[in-house]
């Protein structure tokens, strides 16, 4: 299996042959596909060094000069080390002078599992959601990552794209992502719904599969976290049973859970709700992602149990 970053960067590299409007900045982070990009387009690739603030500032300046600019870094650092730069130079500036800057945030959630809590990124959805005008994407598949690359070349906005660090499947059964809708149903069902984002869509599907003989679970993939088609979303989740949100992020801190609550409230849809994610404490214990999920009650078994008791 390939990774989202390589699929995204590879698609971008191919398109850079036809345009001179792209700059790719890296805060000293690589990828196999990036090796090709910097060989083929050396004048449009810049390693700014381990300096995320400089990465966003430089990207802003280039975007002010009309360039479509990518700022690539490790998730917790490209989101939080430079949050001030994202606020002032991307979100605030974009109101007056529209900017086309894409933050490519590698290693969402617990992707960097055994690297420990400095490299876990459990706050970014909540933080980015507080910045008006920043589009936030959390793809779950290679297909979505590829479609996002096309979107960054065809539309203009400051964006935050949360890329999983581990290999992931081409598709989870959904079609081409509709970014105006913001979600898709990846498993039809007549009972309760699991609404998940990013890597956790796979966990949600595994939990639904575990329960298939007892209850028909619907799984919804929310791949955009700043905008949701509330009518379509509420229609999709209203057909029977409760709703459980699942994210590889701190639960109860303004992430996917709050985003979904807001949509339900906007339409006055009352459902039995449960929010699952990482408990609000830092995870210092060792082990791979599966182990960390199990230890924190967000593995497929735990989710299946929670759904069946909704």
């Amino acid at each position: 299996m390939n990774t989202m970053r390589d699929v995204f960067i590879s698609a971008l590299c191919d398109r850079m042959a036809d345009t001179d409007s792209v700059f790719f900045l890296s805060a000293d982070l690589g990828a196999p596909a990036l090796d090709r990009l910097r060989q083929q387009h050396p004048e449009r690739f810049i390693n700014v060094g381990i300096a995320e603030q400089s990465c966003i500032n430089t990207a802003t300046g280039l975007a002010l000069e009309g360039f479509n600019t990518y700022a690539y870094g490790i998730a917790p650092f490209i989101s939080m080390r430079c949050l001030e730069q994202c606020r002032v130079n991307l979100a605030l500036t974009n109101v007056v002078r529209p900017l086309n800057v894409t933050m490519l945030s590698l290693g969402s959630g617990l992707s960097y599992d055994i690297s420990g809590p400095s490299h876990h990124c459990l706050e970014d959805i909540s933080l980015m959601r507080t910045l008006p005008g920043i589009e936030i994407y959390s793809p779950s598949t290679l297909g979505q990552a590829r479609a996002l690359c096309a979107r960054t070349l065809e539309t203009s906005a400051p964006r935050y794209i949360r890329l999983d660090g581990k290999p992931c499947p081409e598709t989870l059964g959904g079609g081409a992502p509709d970014f105006d809708k913001g979600f898709e149903v990846v498993r039809e069902g007549t009972g309760p719904t699991i609404v998940a984002t990013g890597y956790m869509v796979r966990t949600a599907l595994a939990a639904a599969e575990l329960l298939k003989n007892d209850v028909s679970v619907r799984v919804v993939d929310v791949f955009r976290l700043d905008h949701l088609d509330d009518d379509a979303f509420c229609d999709a989740v209203s057909g029977g049973g409760g709703l459980l949100t699942l994210e590889e992020a701190f639960v109860g801190c303004g992430g996917l859970d709050a985003f979904v609550n807001q949509s339900l409230a906007a339409k006055g849809l009352r459902l039995t709700l449960r929010h699952m994610g990482m408990p609000r404490s830092y995870e210092y214990s060792n082990g791979d992602r599966h182990h960390l999920h199990k230890a924190n009650g967000i593995d497929a078994d735990s989710i299946a149990q929670a759904v069946s008791s909704l």
């Binding site: 603030q53 430089t58 300046g61 730069q85």
Partner: peptide
Amino acid sequence: GHGIGVAAGMALGLKAK
């Protein structure tokens, strides 16, 4: 504390153009 970094990006962009 933002001016030099953003201006450097603008200067780079102008050179590229």
